[in-house]
Design a protein around this nucleic acid. Structure first.
Length: 1089
RNA sequence: GGGCGAUUAGCUCAGUCGGUUAGAGCGCUUCUCUGAUAAGGAAGAGGUCCCUGGUUCGAAUCCAGGAUCGCCCA
């Protein structure tokens, strides 16, 4: 038998934040992170990708969540034997950075930015981007500190940066490949646009600028062109369509009207503003809403589809419009009958729905020839009717015919336009309309939706590929796959990748300045790398950003090529990280590495990244190579404060992550995030919840180890020898030893399976439950063996603690490592150890079940104790246990555990419950339900009418039990019945279901004396502790006071002396303050010898 | 307006295949044990399982509709 190797004491009052500091220093000194990867060199890679955070803002508690979930599985998989590279990364570009710099420099528009150096756009952009470059890493110090402090192991020195030239070059290569596949094109996109700032706004910016305003809305008549009506048309000469619009200024761009194909329409005779009756067309269910009760429906209704192809006269016709102002009707599913007239005015330049509907109808050739809409091509900006300049005023195509509208913001012209419509007899009604409308969050100007030329990736054409790729991905939680993400992919539209901004990856598209003869459009060249650009132009760029890249031009085929001004959507940057972090394909070594690691086993980000990182990864992967980029994706939810409020500076409820870390330690926060709930559900963060984790898990674990170290050190005067982590202690094992070992193996199995399935919550909870069993049952019930230095108990406890440390290593890397090292683990760090294999031979599920029964028996016994008023210190002669079959066997097997815990001399069994009370019968619905179905009610009554005690006896004798149900006889087995005890009169017992425990409450003189002696013993122990003695100190004892108490002690003197490590006891001469022992005064005096 | 998710004790959360008296931890009250623990044990109080309808012998669980909250999108 080898003694456990620990001599050092484990400080029971450990500060975890301080401990973590020590552990971190040890990791650095022993180079543990590097070695943990190096020792797996050549093993199967397990690929993790860091979705790059932006370091231009201060990290918050929610970033701890991300950091630790990105850390736990790589640590686990490393222990499992995989080679897990972990490379950090930083997102450098994009609007968040630009906005921070705008604030810092006091700028509020693109105009401002381009005039930092007045009149010199190029120099201004240079200054602006230089400021962005500096701002990108404003908080990188905090980020690095946070990352290390929470124990996230990731290579920050080699972190990729999306603004590096090599990264940009990789992106260029990807775009070139996509262009070669015909997936890159220029088109239009309707965006929320601020005409004052001259910029499009992101949805996030739009969301913060909604205000309630009152607009003038108008019901406008579109007279149909009678000559063009098909014979089958339900319409007549003189009829008009009526549309309702809240933006009359967009009528100048009207090219079509939409109706619902399945909506019922009617012709209506109704007076207009001037009282003249007009025949108009509207959806039947909106007639009263739109025209009031005077409206008279003419004839039968007809479906919207019957109106398709109807040609009408648009109300305003801009100069140069080749169609003479004819619009046409299409059917579209988005037309609703919630408001308006059921006929919707379409201006593709000013509405995304309009744009898509018209583009779609045009592509399907559903517009009559000669209408403007018929020529519309989403990919050709020249075919779009847009008479508004980007400063928000009408251009000359309007002002040539209507000079009164010049130089005014179009949105301010609504009233003038409505007046003109009225003058021309086209206004059916007007109406003030109050609604929520977006404004620029910077300057307050109402936004307009506005078509802008934009570059696209044709992701819609690879939609099937995206869905097929998604099909191979395992999502956590699973509903994301078909739900949020699947829906997003199914509704996928082409990815608009260009931004008219400054600080971003420049789009590598060079266009010819002139159009070659015989061609419609300028030529374009997509440049695939910085090297290629150097070859074409002779210019080698050190910094690929604007404005330097804008300077580069080159000549080819007699044409001059200049770069387009736009930069790339930052999300493309992040989606390019699988290859761009390796500088692939241009760097041969990087390319090789990328090829071997091109599919991630695991990525983990916030739930909001379904439209961000998760999407950009899969889109680029499918566009480039038609495969899924990742196998497992874990989504994280939001962190709210303890009241469920979003954390925000204005509310003052933001939790400082460093403060929380300093107070509780990283492992405490990690434990909270891992075990309190599934991470995608979101958290209500509270200090209290984190503190509970420390109090109920970390401290009990730590103190169990401390307890072990204390007694192991005492026992180590025997033979210290290193025990391998996995070697079971030899010698006489008790049932408790075998039980805790079995539980240990079971816990290992659960943790392994859960972590393999990316479920750290289940793993953590299982480990937590095991520590509770270890501390509150195994140790509690084995204390005497530890006091005695039992090597088997010590060895078993050590093995269990080492196992806990190992299982806990990925979750709580600091505490687990400190425990492991203190317990004398065989490696320099638990993080260099292998994940433990489950040993099925050491599982004993029957024993686990038996122990559960025994604990239940104890629970009932203790309840009986409490009810009886006799405290546990008073020994009792016996406990009478009611149990049968397996339960009885279990209790007999573990009698010692139960008698010790209940402090009774013996357990006695009554053979059957009916000897202690009457048996009540209930039907077992689970077995009878399927058998009797609807007759269950009768069956229940029949069973409850039986004499339970006799039935129990009959079943015991193997006799059949028969019930009469509707005249038929049915035989019941023991499984069909649930038997429980009813408390008999004059008996005190605790029962639950089929168990019961009764205590023999008779206390004779001997038992009373023993109880008294124990009470004195307890006071001696208190005196020892008060005197500050070590648990190994020997003492001399003097007792005085109550004679009865002293007599009781004399009767149990040997026992007492052994328990309190007293060499001798004297019953006189004791000095000191008397203490109360069961109502008697006793004087206790202890002296160290 | 659309999609997705959530709703169980004062709080944080479990709840398996539809099954019997819906559980745990924290907190609270009372009692208790203690050679490790900030711990442990016992009892008590605390529930419209969001609501309504349906399916079923039986619904926290399945279905439909609705409410509230959150996220994403429009």
């Amino acid at each position: 038998m080898t003694a456990p190797p620990v001599r050092a004491s484990i400080d029971p009052r450990q500060s975890f934040p301080e401990l973590e500091q020590t552990v971190a220093e040890r990791w650095a000194a022993r180079d543990v992170f590097q070695r943990s990867m190096e020792q797996r060199e050549g093993a199967k890679p397990w690929v993790f990708w860091e979705g790059p955070p932006t370091a231009n803002g201060r990290p918050g508690v929610h970033h701890i969540l991300g950091r630790v979930f990105k850390d736990v599985f790589p640590r686990f998989q490393t222990m499992r034997g995989h080679h897990v590279e972990r490379r950090g990364g930083w997102d450098c570009h994009g609007l968040p950075v630009e906005i921070a710099v705008e604030k810092q420099l006091g700028l509020s528009s693109k105009h401002d930015i381009e005039n930092i150096v007045p009149g010199d756009v190029r120099a201004s952009i240079e200054r602006f981007n230089a400021a962005c470059r500096e701002s990108v890493f404003a908080y990188i110090g905090d980020w690095d500190r946070l990352t290390r402090r929470v124990g996230m192991w990731i290579d920050l020195e080699r972190a990729y940066r999306t603004m590096d030239a090599s990264y940009v070059s990789s992106i260029w290569s990807a775009l070139k490949t996509m262009d070669e596949k015909g997936l890159l094109y220029q088109g239009n996109k309707v965006v929320p646009f601020c005409t004052r700032c001259g910029t499009a706004l992101s949805s996030h910016e739009v969301a913060q600028g909604y205000e309630d305003i009152k607009d003038t809305s108008a019901y406008v008549r579109f007279p149909v062109v009678a000559e063009a009506l098909p014979l089958s048309s339900p319409l007549r000469k003189g009829d008009s369509l009526v549309v309702w619009t809240t933006t009359p200024w967009t009528l100048w761009a009207n090219v079509a009207a939409a109706v619902g194909p399945d909506v019922e329409y009617v012709r209506v005779s109704t007076p207009d503003r001037d009282g003249e009756r007009r025949v108009v067309v509207a959806a039947r269910e909106l007639v009263e809403h739109a025209f009031g009760e005077d409206a008279e429906v003419l004839g039968d209704g007809f479906p919207g589809s019957a109106l398709e192809g109807t040609v009408y006269e648009a109300p305003f016709v801009a100069a140069g419009r080749t169609d003479a102002g004819y619009g046409a009707v299409i059917a579209a599913d988005f037309v609703s009958t919630d408001s308006g007239t059921g006929v919707v005015h379409l201006a593709p330049a000013f509405g995304q729905d309009d744009f898509v509907a018209v583009a779609d109808a045009a592509a399907k050739r559903r517009f009559p020839a000669g209408t403007a809409a018929a020529k519309f091509d989403a990919r050709d900006p020249a075919t779009l009717l847009n008479p508004v300049r980007d400063d928000g005023t009408y251009d000359e195509t309007v002002t040539d015919v209507a000079p009164q509208y010049a130089d005014r913001f179009v949105k301010d012209l609504d009233l003038d336009l409505v007046t003109e419509l009225a003058d021309r007899g086209l206004l059916q009604r007007k109406q003030r309309y109050e609604h929520s409308y977006p404004h620029c969050w910077r300057c307050g100007t109402p936004l307009i939706y506005y078509a802008r030329p934009s570059w696209y990736l044709a992701t819609e054409t690879v939609r099937d590929g995206l869905l097929a790729a998604n099909d191979t991905v395992t999502w956590h939680p699973p509903h994301i796959k078909e739900g949020r993400f699947g829906e997003w992919l199914r509704g996928n539209v082409d990815w608009a990748i260009s931004r008219s901004r400054y600080w971003g990856t420049p789009l590598p598209i060079w266009q010819s300045t002139t159009v070659q003869e015989g061609e419609d459009l300028p030529r374009r060249i997509v440049v695939g790398s910085l090297e290629e650009l150097a070859e074409r132009s002779g210019v080698t760029l050190e910094d690929p950003h604007r404005p330097f890249v804008d300077d580069v031009t080159f000549q080819e085929d007699g044409l001059t090529f200049e770069r387009i001004p736009e930069v790339l959507d930052v999300w493309f940057d992040s989606g390019a990280m699988p290859f761009a972090q390796d500088a692939a394909p241009q760097d041969p070594e990087g390319l090789e590495h990328y090829e071997a690691h091109r599919i991630a086993d695991y990525v983990c980000e916030g739930l909001d990244q379904t439209r961000g990182f998760f999407y950009s990864l899969i889109a680029e992967s499918v566009l480039l190579r038609d495969e899924a980029p990742y196998k497992n994706v874990l989504c994280l939810g939001l962190i709210l404060d303890e009241n469920g409020q979003k954390m925000s500076k204005s509310k003052g409820n933001v939790v400082d992550p460093f403060e929380a870390l300093d107070r509780f330690g990283a492992d405490a926060l990690r434990w909270y995030f891992f075990t309190s709930k599934q991470p995608w559900e979101g958290y209500r963060y509270s200090d209290e919840a984190v503190r509970d984790g420390v109090r109920l898990f970390l401290l009990p674990l730590w103190n169990t180890a401390s307890f072990y170290a204390q007694y192991a050190a005492i026992a180590a005067d025997a033979v210290p020898a290193a025990t391998p982590d996995t070697e079971a202690p030899a010698g006489e094992e008790t049932e408790l030893d075998r039980w805790i070992v079995s539980r240990m193996e079971a816990t290992t199995a659960v943790a392994t399976e859960a972590l393999d399935a990316y479920d750290v919550t289940t793993a953590g909870r299982a480990i937590g439950a095991f520590v509770d069993e270890l501390s509150n049952w195994y140790v509690r019930r084995s204390r005497r063996r530890f006091w005695d230095g039992d090597p088997v108990a010590l060895g078993t406890l050590r093995e269990a603690l080492v196992r806990v440390a190992t299982l806990l290593a990925p979750l709580a890397p600091f505490v687990s490592d400190e425990l492991y090292v203190q317990l004398g683990g065989t490696h320099d760090s638990v993080h260099l150890a292998d994940w433990p294999a489950v040993d099925p031979a050491r599982r004993d599920e029957a024993l686990e079940a038996d122990m559960a029964t025994a604990r239940e028996t104890v629970r009932l016994g203790l309840a009986a104790r409490a009810a009886s008023g006799l405290n546990v210190r008073q020994p009792l002669r016996k406990a009478v246990v009611v149990a049968t079959g397996d339960e009885r066997a279990a209790i007999e097997r573990l009698t010692g555990v139960i008698t010790d815990e209940l402090n009774v001399k013996a357990l006695e069994f009554v053979a059957e419950a009916d000897e202690l009370g009457r048996v009540a019968l209930k039907p077992n619905l689970r077995s009878l339900g399927p058998r009797f179905g609807k007759a269950m009610g009768t069956v229940r009554a029949a069973i409850e009418g039986l004499d339970g005690t006799r039935v129990a006896a009959a079943l015991r004798e193997g006799e059949p039990v028969v019930v009469q149900i509707d005249g038929a006889e049915h035989e019941l087995t023991a499984d069909d019945l649930l038997m429980s005890l009813e408390t008999p009169d004059g008996y005190q017992l605790e029962r639950e279901g089929q168990h019961a425990v009764a205590l023999d409450l008779e206390v004779d003189d001997a038992l009373r004396a023993e109880g008294l002696a124990r009470a004195v013993l307890r006071q001696v122990q208190v005196a020892r502790q008060d005197a500050g003695f070590e648990v190994t100190d020997r003492i001399e004892l003097r007792l005085g006071g109550d004679a009865g108490a002293l007599d009781a002690v004399r009767a149990h003197e040997d026992h007492l002396l052994g328990e309190v490590l007293a060499a001798s006891v004297a019953y006189e001469g004791a000095t000191g303050t008397p203490v109360q022992v069961d109502g008697r005064d006793v004087v206790v005096q202890v002296t160290r010898v």
